[in-house]
Write a protein that binds this DNA or RNA. Structure first.
Length: 899
RNA sequence: GGACGAUUAGCUCAGUUGGUUAGAGCGUUCGAUUCACAUUCGAAAGGUCCUCGGUUCGAAUCCGAGAUCGUCCACCA
């Protein structure tokens, strides 16, 4: 017999082990079943499982379990990410701290440092693996991948080479976001802007006044830029030169006219520093101006700064201002100027734009064939397009659907503003740029060419470069990647997993990495394989604390750690609490009471099962002997029939909800069906005269439907009551909807529920002690037979000792007026559920419908509407009209029969 | 500066294409409890659906304007 309360600790690990051992997670690439694939967004190999992972795992597990039960060949590929910059800086910091080595890169050298990082990652990956299991994730561990696997490295190199050969990857001096602290570039998306109040200085510069918050960059400035239409400066022509007294003596400056200048800002004139500012760089490129480096890669001023050379920015700034002031060039200081300071999202250090030789992906060059997907290809075969255009097309044409839809706009907007992607990083941990140099010769490829003296590029690739290949690089056969004679195309063609499981079905991830990752997967995968990476993108929101704040380690009191929650409340409860009430793309709040609420639900289900099993036992029936889906049709009570009927609707709704990714709504439906109907009414009514077969069979179906949401408890309960030939729930077939609804039984059941509820309320209203058995008269004309047949239930659930049901209004009036001492309560049903109430509501509905019909008829009678509105709309209105008329007719008939 | 989203009970949120008396969970109040479950059961209180205007027979829902909050993007020398 089951314990009195569900104890997840005693169940979860055992169940997970059973699933894993059984091979239920493994997908078969030779199967003829329809594939359903999810690539797990790989958690950072260094990390601990947090709520962001937990919600991702819960959602994906629901998708995959539903697909598996529906008989699809379901594959969920797990893995971990090497998280280049994050990991390298974690390990470096650790070495600095533990071994007191201030510069581990210099001291240990590349080989040793990389070895240490790899070692560290290997340890952390084990932690992540076990944490993913704790959530109940039914992923195929035999296919686990890691972004630094050799096979994936081969894919990275092949794609790099392909892009290089296509002219999509180039090396160039471009202005990049340089992080002086981590000594590497970061991509535009990794830069954050923080508001900062700093003094804003206005200086005299020749005949002009220029304003700046960063005087330390101004040493080399020799161009003043203004808008060509600015009337204040009409007398200066583009190309004019003049002499100006400046920080370290006089400089010769040139006037430049450029449209990008905002005339309303400051004085409308600025000097530019092309080496250290994106906008200035662009202006300089447009006009072919000289660029000069002022600040070194270590963040210190260079020779050009004269007496200030070697100083850090913080040191130099006040001194420079002081000097300019003493020269009489400072005209104004605004102390309250708010400006946005660029900082690195990773290290948090400030970003110093610098010009560097870097590798880039050209997103505008039109050299790529239209993707092979059906919709986007229509009529465009053979056309060449840019990576940007590909990314746009596959979403625009509906090959890829984003849920929620509104993120389409954000996505398109991002593409419109996308600049070339800087893919090289000056760190050691990651996929090394597969390029070799010997003097001026360049060779691109995974291996060094024949001959001596070739040296590989020291840089590594942006971590998102390898992540962008994730949906398919994880599906190539690793053995094939060892054969260097095969092309990428051959490898893909000969990899059974890729052939069977790609494109993947759904990519589920947080909306915060739509740009970082999702967009880049679309870009890279569609380019490299000719296939879209996934058909649907499901974006979940962030989990916040109870105050709507981001959970962070700095506020431990609001932190919820899944690893604390799981032993306490169970993985099932955690899963429900994160999914019900969360709609895609929107943030949601999580706190312990919420989780406890779902723990209670799990326990309710547990106890309902316990009750059912006890009924079996006392009836001497072994539940295993009860066949599934074969309810005894004789002697079905109203409750049995109503349950059967409602069950049909539930199956249909849950199937539909899961198919269309409406997880929250569907979860809520299941919750309320189980608690509010099955437990509160059906089980209560079955007490005393239970139909065991119905009881068991309905509960089994409930377990099946709930399994994707709360796999552990359902599997455990299933093992207690499954039919003897059935296997585990995880692979149990999903029920089908057989469409036979019993509306009469549902209506009668509802009347019974209404009557009992009314009695309870009546008792409370009249202050009758709940313990006391009462005598009751129910007066009804329409439902006398029904209520009489259910008298036993009414008596038991309403604590009524003596029940009289009469259709005679006089009886009740007499009883009430005579204050018959032996009658406690009188319940006239006329105002509750009786014909009078029905009549009233029907009359109201009729009036509404009539005016509705009138409205539509007026619309359709309007010539302008019929002529100008889209035909579909007119048709829809017509359909609605006939529907309403039909309904009106029905109501008319019913009303006639009532009176 | 541009875009997107939110605003419904004390709190957290549902509310399908406009249609009975706007719902749930938590919390609160009152009551119950050997009979599956106190991780329970019954009942109650609690709402100007942000504001104004419009469309409609009918608006929480559609349209317009505004307010407040939040997020993303761009970025100003």
């Amino acid at each position: 017999m089951l314990e009195k309360a569900y104890d997840p600790k005693a169940v979860e690990d055992r169940i997970y082990e059973m699933w894993e051992k059984s091979g239920a997670f493994k997908a078969d690439n030779k199967s003829t079943k329809e594939p359903f694939t999810i690539s797990m967004p790989p958690p950072n190999a260094t990390g601990q499982l947090h709520l962001g992972h937990a919600v991702m795992l819960a959602l994906e597990d629901i998708f995959i379990r539903f697909a598996r039960m529906q008989g699809k060949e379901a594959l969920w590929v797990p893995g971990t990410d090497h998280a280049a910059i994050a990991t390298e800086s974690v390990v470096i910091r650790q070495i600095q701290k533990d071994e007191k080595i201030p510069d581990p890169r210099a001291k240990l050298g590349r080989e040793e440092l990389v070895r240490r990082i790899a070692e560290f990652v290997e340890k952390s990956r084990g932690v992540i693996r076990s944490q993913v299991r704790k959530m109940g994730s039914s992923c195929d561990w035999s296919r686990e991948r890691y972004t630094m696997d050799n096979a994936l490295n081969r894919c990275v190199n092949e794609v790099f080479k392909k892009m290089y050969d296509d002219g999509l990857i180039y090396r160039g001096h471009r202005i990049v976001n340089w992080d002086p602290k981590l000594q590497t570039t970061v991509s535009d998306d990794e830069v954050e802007y923080k508001e900062e109040i700093s003094p804003f200085y206005t200086f005299k510069y020749g005949p002009f006044e220029i304003a700046t918050a960063r005087p330390e960059t101004k040493f080399g400035d020799k161009y003043v830029v203004m808008h060509p239409d600015d009337e204040r400066y009409m007398k200066y022509k583009h190309g004019d030169t003049f002499e100006a007294e400046w920080i370290n003596g006089p400089v010769r400056a040139t006037v430049i006219k450029d449209d990008s200048i905002d005339m309303a800002f400051g004085t409308g004139v600025m000097t530019i520093t092309p080496w250290h500012d994106h906008t200035d760089f662009e202006i300089a490129e447009r006009h072919g101006l000289e660029k000069e480096q002022i600040i070194g890669f270590d963040g210190k001023l260079l020779e050009v700064a004269g007496e200030f050379a070697g100083m850090s920015i913080e040191e130099a700034r006040p001194l420079i201002v002081e000097k300019l002031k003493s020269k009489g060039l400072l005209t104004k200081v605004d102390e309250n100027y708010v400006h946005n300071k660029a900082v690195s999202q990773r290290g948090g250090g400030s970003i110093e734009p610098q010009i560097r030789l870097q590798w880039f992906i050209d997103v505008n060059k039109e050299v790529v064939k239209w993707p092979a997907s059906a919709k986007a290809t229509a009529g465009k075969k053979g056309q060449l397009m840019s990576l940007k255009q590909i990314m746009h097309a596959v979403v625009h044409h509906g090959d890829i659907a984003i849920i929620p839809e509104r993120f389409d706009k954000t996505y398109f907007h991002w593409i419109d503003n996308l600049r070339d992607w800087c893919i090289s990083r000056q760190i050691w941990w990651g996929h090394r740029v597969p390029v070799w140099y010997k003097g001026d010769d360049i060779h691109v490829g995974a291996q060094a060419p024949e001959g001596k003296g070739w040296e590989q590029d020291p840089d590594t690739l942006d971590t998102w470069f390898s992540s962008a290949l994730w949906t398919w690089s994880t599906l190539v056969d690793p053995k094939l990647t060892e054969d260097m004679s095969l092309s990428l195309e051959d490898i893909l063609k000969q990899s059974p997993d890729f052939q069977k499981f790609h494109p993947t079905s759904v990519m589920e991830t947080g909306y915060d990495i739509l740009f970082f990752w999702v967009a880049r997967m679309i870009l890279m995968t569609t380019y490299a394989t000719g296939q879209i990476p996934f058909k649907t993108v499901y974006l979940h929101g962030l989990i916040r604390d109870r105050n709507g704040q981001k959970m962070s380690k700095s506020k431990p009191e609001t932190m919820i750690d899944p690893l604390d929650i799981i032993p306490k409340y169970g993985a099932d409860a955690l899963r429900l609490s994160m999914i019900v009430g969360q709609s895609p793309g929107a943030d949601s709040r999580l706190y312990e009471e919420k989780i406890a609420g779902y723990r209670n639900f799990i326990n309710k289900l547990w106890n309902a099962s316990r009750f059912v099993l006890m009924q079996c036992e006392s009836a001497g029936i072994d539940p295993a002997e009860i066949e599934n889906g074969k309810w005894k049709m004789e002697n079905l009570s109203i409750a049995d029939r109503a349950l059967q009927s409602k069950m049909q609707t539930l199956v249909a709704e849950v199937s539909d909800g899961l198919t269309n990714y409406r997880l929250s709504e569907t979860g809520e439906k299941l919750y309320s069906f189980v608690w509010d109907f099955y437990c509160d009414w059906y089980l209560e009514l079955s007490k005393g005269n239970a139909n065991i077969a119905v009881l068991v069979d309905a509960l089994r179906t409930i377990l099946v439907l709930l399994h994707p949401y709360c796999p552990f408890v359902t599997e455990e309960l299933w093992s207690q009551m499954k039919p003897k030939n059935a296997g585990m729930l995880i692979t149990h077939p999903w029920p089908t909807f057989n469409a036979s609804r019993d509306e009469e039984a549902e209506a009668q059941m509802q009347i019974l529920i209404d009557v009992i509820t009314a009695i309870r309320k009546l008792r409370t209203d009249q202050g009758v002690e709940p313990k006391k058995d009462v005598s009751l008269i129910i007066q009804t004309s329409a439902h006398k037979d029904l209520l009489e047949s259910q008298a036993e239930h009414i008596k038991r659930l309403g604590r009524v000792e003596d029940l009289t049901i009469t259709s005679d209004k006089k009886t009740i009036d007499d009883a009430a007026s005579a204050f018959l001492p032996d009658i406690d309560l009188y319940l006239p049903l006329a105002g509750l559920i009786d014909t009078e109430k029905e009549k009233a509501s029907l009359t109201k509905e009729k009036a509404q419908l009539e005016s509705y019909v009138k409205g539509i008829e007026a619309k359709l009678g309007n010539k302008q509407f019929v002529d100008k509105a889209p035909p579909a709309l007119v048709e829809e209105q017509k359909a609605r009209l006939s529907e309403a008329k039909e309904k009106l007719e029905k109501i008319g008939k019913r009303l006639a029969s009532l009176s």
